[in-house]
């Protein structure tokens, strides 16, 4: 099935180095008969200074991949490196420090601490570390994201798009080696979504950052340099310089393949998800009408009482 896997060989040449890589990365939930493989021996390299998108239907393991690469989740087997540091095997405390100092995060929602102002949220990781932010860089980030007038505002006083820009600024301000964005446009209307994607693009092109974005929106993926397609815990394909149309086509094909191969035996958690086949057409940034993608997180979700 993963026809594209052999093509995706480690050590790609054209990027100026590797920001993060994984070898034989496997993540399993449950045990015995009920074992679910969220990631099945994934090998991946994230090129430095590029904007990589990870796509795949619900349950494909794309969020899990990001969590494992970012040191948020433990792996069942395999190795993960951030730069030259192998993070699999690091202790909790070292992982925390690594996330704080070397990785930036954007999530789909609830990105900001409600009690802190925008400015305080932006510098939060550095404040936690007890470091002074580089003032010139901070100013540049704030101006790039157009947040100058909003610095004293609390998150509740900001629009969804502004909140995501603050989160983006927070991810940028410590100049991390890698920025992970988990569905950063998922909760935004198309205009605000485009804006955020534009900033991520700018962060890569103008500020030299490395961004990995998890999404299932072909329009969002089209802003990246490289799209990795995940299905059933494996990287099944990749696409350079993607367009929304091409990505959508790829996703459709990929669904068809799955339908043919798996028939009615498709696992329950591998539901069609974004249902790209029903979309009227390629609409970059279109994010309305989708159901929240929750089933993916459920295997290890806490007691949701």
């Amino acid at each position: 099935m993963p026809t594209a896997a052999p093509e995706h060989a480690p050590g790609r040449a054209e990027a100026d180095g590797i920001a993060a890589r994984a070898r034989g990365l496997t993540k399993a939930y449950g045990s015995g008969e009920t074992t679910v493989l969220a990631l099945d021996s994934v090998d991946v390299d994230i090129a430095r200074g590029r904007f990589t998108a990870v796509m795949g239907p619900s349950g494909s393991g794309k969020s899990t991949l990001m969590h494992c690469l970012a040191g948020l989740d433990t792996v069942s087997a395999g190795q993960v490196w951030l730069g030259e540091t192998e993070i699999t095997g690091l202790k909790e405390r070292e992982l925390t420090r690594l996330r704080r100092d070397r990785i930036g995060f954007m999530f789909q929602s609830f990105n900001l601490i409600p009690t802190l102002t925008a400015a305080e949220n932006i510098t939060l990781p550095m404040d936690i570390a007890g470091q002074r932010p580089d003032q010139a860089w901070l100013n540049e980030v704030i101006d790039t994201l157009g947040l100058r007038a909003r610095l004293k505002h609390r998150p509740s006083q900001l629009s969804g798009g502004q909140q995501q820009r603050v989160a983006c600024a927070r991810a940028l301000v410590s100049r991390p080696e890698l920025i992970f964005a988990d569905e950063p446009t998922g909760n935004l209307d198309s205009r605000a979504g485009l804006e955020v994607l534009g900033f991520l693009r700018q962060a890569v092109d103008n500020l030299g950052q490395t961004v990995v974005m998890v999404t299932h929106d072909p329009g969002a993926a089209a802003h990246s340099d490289l799209v990795l397609f995940l299905a059933d815990g494996r990287i099944v394909d990749e696409m350079e310089r993607p367009t929304a149309e091409a990505v959508l086509e790829r996703m459709k094909r990929f669904d068809t393949v799955r339908a043919v191969f798996d028939g009615g035996d498709a696992p329950a958690d591998a539901s069609p998800g974004p249902a790209p086949g029903t979309a009227s057409g390629p609409a970059p940034g279109t994010s309305s009408g989708r159901s929240p993608e929750e089933s993916e997180e459920s295997p290890e979700s806490p007691d949701k009482d």
Partner: peptide, 17 residues
């Protein structure tokens, strides 16, 4: 504040902190 705590932990707040 579960989510908030999760976020703080994700962006690098140590347990001790």
């Amino acid at each position: 504040r579960t989510r908030e705590i999760g976020l703080l932990r994700a962006i690098g707040l140590a347990r001790r902190q």
